[in-house]
Each structure stands twice: as C-alpha cells, then as structure tokens.
Design a protein around this nucleic acid. Structure first.
Lengths: 248, 248
DNA sequence: TAACTTAGTGTAAAATTTACACTTCCAAAG
DNA sequence: CTTTGGAAGTGTAAATTTTACACTAAGTTA
C-alpha cells in the first residue's frame, strides 16, 4: 500500500490569485467563471482561489489552486495580504454557491491574496474544477466581482503600481524582446497616465538595463522599431548601488 | 439573562503586532516576555499576538490582543501580511509553551501581522494575560525572537522603510512639537543611514508641511532649537497634487 | 571664561527634469 | 507609382533638484 499523506483541507484559510497580463494595449486580469444563478455577470466572475490544505504552505497552496482552476503552472506569486472581514462572504449568491462545493460552507474564511505578472502569450488558461471558464479581462472594465474579490483586485493593483516604481516588475509582462514603444505602453497602462516619449526613452536607456538587439520589427505598417532585452545582470548591479526608484 | 455572544476562538488564525517607538535616539519595538524554560533570552521574547475570535475582524483582533497583552489601547494598525509556513511553530520550546496556554496547541496556525508607530512617551506598557513583561527593545539589538517573529519584525521594518519614503508616517513617532534635529534623527534611525543636515532641512522645509512654532527648547545645554508641528492640512494638499516621494 | 554641544545658515557645480516638433521608414490604399 | 497613415526615433534650452561642504550662534557645564 502506498504511503500517502491524507490531504486535509483547512476550513478557515483560503488563497486567491490576481494574475495580471498585458496584451500591448491594456492591463488584463485572469478571472474564472462559476456555474450558478447570479444576478449579473460580475457576480459570476471570481479570482481563482480555494481553501488550503493543512500541510501546505500558503504560496504552494496558491500555486496549486491556480493550476487546478486555470491550468497555469509554476507561476511566481507575491503576497498581497490577508482579507478577513467576518462578513466577506455575505452575498446570498456566494453563500449558495459555497454550499454547492464545500463540506463546511458556513465556516469563517480568511483569504490570503497573491499576485503575479505574466506574458499572456505564454499561457493559455484552461478552466477546470469548479471553474467553467478562465479568461483574461480588461482591468478597466471590471466593476465588481464575487465575494470581496473586487477589493482584493484593487489592492493588488495598488501594490503593483507601487512596486512598478521601485522594481523592474513590469518586464514580467513583456516578451523576452520588446520595443521601447511597447514598454512605454505597459507603464502607461498600469500607471494610468501617459508619459512623454522622449523623456521615457532617455530615462530608461540611461539606466543601462536594456540591451539593444540587432533585430527589428517585421511586417509592421510603419517604421520598424528596434528590439530590446531586459539586462538582469546590469539591473542587479544598479540595484546594489542603491537604485530603487524609477520615478515614472 | 443577558444575551451574550459566545466568543469562539479560531484555532487556525492568529494576529501579531509590531509596535515601533522612538526615543529620539533609536528605533524601538515593543516585545513581551513569556514564562517558560527557554535556552536563551531571545526565545523568551515575542511579538504581542494571539488567536482571533471567529466573529471578529482581523484588525479588531489585533487591537484587542495588543491591549490584552500590553495595555496599549486604540492603536492605529496597518497590515504587514500573512505568515503561514506549516512549520512556523517548530521550535520545541514554542510547542511546549503553546501546550501550556492553548486548548488546541498542535493546530496549524497562520498569523496576520500588523504594525504601528507610536510615541513611546504616550504609552506605558503593562504586561498582562500570558505576558510577564512588556517593554521597549532597541531594534538593532534584536537577533532572534520566538516562533517566526524575527522574520515578521524584519518584514515590518522593510515595509516601514518603504512607507517612510512615500508618506509622512514617521510623524507618528514624534511628539506634537519637535525640533528638526529630532526629526532628522528619526529618519536616520529608521533608514539606517545618516543624512546631511543642511540638505535635510532645506528639503523638508521646502515641502511646507512643517509649521514653525514660536516656542524654543528649554534647559538644553546647547543652543536651543525651534519647535515645529506637522501641518496635516498642507500635507494633504501636497499629496493631492501627486506628491508621494520624500526621497530620503 | 573656556570647553562642549547642538542649532542654524549659503553657495557653486552637477545632475535631473521638463516641455516641446520634426524627420524617417514601412505597409497599405489608391 | 504615388500618396497617406502610423509609429519610430531624435536634441535642446530652461528650470529644478541634488550634492558636497564649514563656519558662527547660543546655550550649559566645568
């Protein structure tokens, strides 16, 4: 008989994942859709999340749950924080839905939220488990979500904006090679403001963390742009010398 | 018969508080001492913290626990994050100690950490409950703590340093009136580096968030310094205009 | 009255930030 | 083949901010 540890769910603690993506136009977030009777579509949509196992650490739980619900595997996640209002599961439709999937549907649950930035083109979300779909949604168009997931999303977005100012996290949204125009659009989409092209270029190039490639864009109906790569080694040097403010 | 809700402890979720203070010299943190057989003193010291009640939100729980253990009341707390390694209660002395105070000592516990900044002179900590003492300790002199509290402290300190750069949180450590020298020492103590006096003064005064008072220091054995107050109204105006980087 | 301690002050050079407009290169349309 | 549309790419002058740096002033104590 195979010795297998019985995985016991902890009824009081869940994890939720805010996965951001970027399609060179807008900031997107990965949401699942659930079966059930919901007044409006927004209540059908939720962040991928579920209860943790007792033996599992929080980060692994978030990675497992994310994979179970959307198929996304080996995603680097960063904690946003804990959300634990006693009434965070107060919407009647959410309560009903929990009764349909949980052994202990009325337990007080606090959730730990994580976020990540991925290249949309690297992952094709596949709904599974209780998710009936898993798709990218434009962050600006989301007005509400199931449970307290809308406020979790807002807080993750705030944290992303903060981190974007002090670390090169945005490069995780970009493909290995990208143009300066694409990079600028990423900053603009996340920060929600437009930046001066010449000043943006001067500033980011001055840091010497972008390596220009020989290659240029192909088959675009305008002047082709040069491709760049993020130079992590140079960034690490810069960081060691105390740099922690991009100032965009 | 008085209708009283029975307060039921949640065996899986606790809160811990990192309370920072400043004595015009060093950054301090409020720690409790516990009864028990500990190899060394560091293992006897812990952040004030305990299990939450099921009906209670996380922030209120942190405030309640803080008051129960140290007497500090009505403290504004800010979340640091969740700490939930399955083995975070792995030290044998910690396990023993939990057996002496908890109904369910072997439960998996995740903890939500909060932090705050207070004026040491406003509060006289009073140990209570399972705390045998509650005192201020110099942050620089702490090398380890019970459970995973040392890493919680480090993370709270990191977060404090971040926030100090973008918001005037440091004024919470200062009395209502203070000198520029005291203010500078506060920044130096937290950031762990020395600042140029003239540049510091020019920079902070330029922001126009300090109101000079007529009053001067008394009975100091050197040239008496002018007192200032934090001008919150002006700061709010500054903030609304987009300011979010002190740049120290 | 001398010694000690912190308060308080100015400047010049360097670096950074800001605002701003035109030419280039490609594909697609006509 | 020519025109048009669209993003790429580039420089400068003015204003602001940052940096490095040393002495005098005003109290108390010895």
């Amino acid at each position: 008989m195979k010795a297998e540890k019985i995985q016991q769910l902890n009824p009081n603690v869940s994890v939720d994942c805010v996965i951001f993506g970027f399609d060179f136009e807008q900031l997107k977030v990965l949401l699942i859709e659930r079966e059930g009777n919901f007044e409006d579509k927004s209540q059908r949509l939720a962040l991928p999340g579920d209860l943790i196992f007792n033996s599992e650490n929080l980060l692994s739980a978030a990675q497992r749950v994310l994979e179970e619900l959307t198929g996304l595997k080996d995603i680097f996640l960063k904690q946003v924080g804990a959300f634990g209002e006693p009434d965070r599961i107060s919407k009647e439709t959410d309560k009903q839905w929990l009764r349909s999937i949980r052994a202990n549907p009325d337990a007080r649950v606090i959730t730990i939220a994580y976020y990540s930035l991925v290249q949309i083109t690297d992952y094709a979300p596949q709904a599974n488990s209780f998710a009936t779909s898993a798709n990218w949604y434009d962050v600006r168009e989301i007005e509400d979500l199931a449970f307290d997931h809308y406020s979790i999303l807002r807080q993750a977005l705030d944290q992303l904006r903060m981190e974007l100012q002090s670390r090169p996290v945005g490069f995780n949204l970009m493909p290995p090679k990208f143009t300066l125009g694409q990079l600028q659009k990423m900053y603009e989409a996340i920060l929600g403001k437009s930046l001066d092209k010449r000043n943006f270029r001067r500033k980011i190039l001055k840091l010497d963390i972008l390596a220009p490639l020989e290659e240029k864009q192909q088959e675009v109906s305008h002047k082709p742009a040069q491709y760049f790569m993020f130079n992590e080694e140079n960034y690490n040097k810069l960081r060691e010398s105390g740099f922690d403010n991009f100032g965009f």
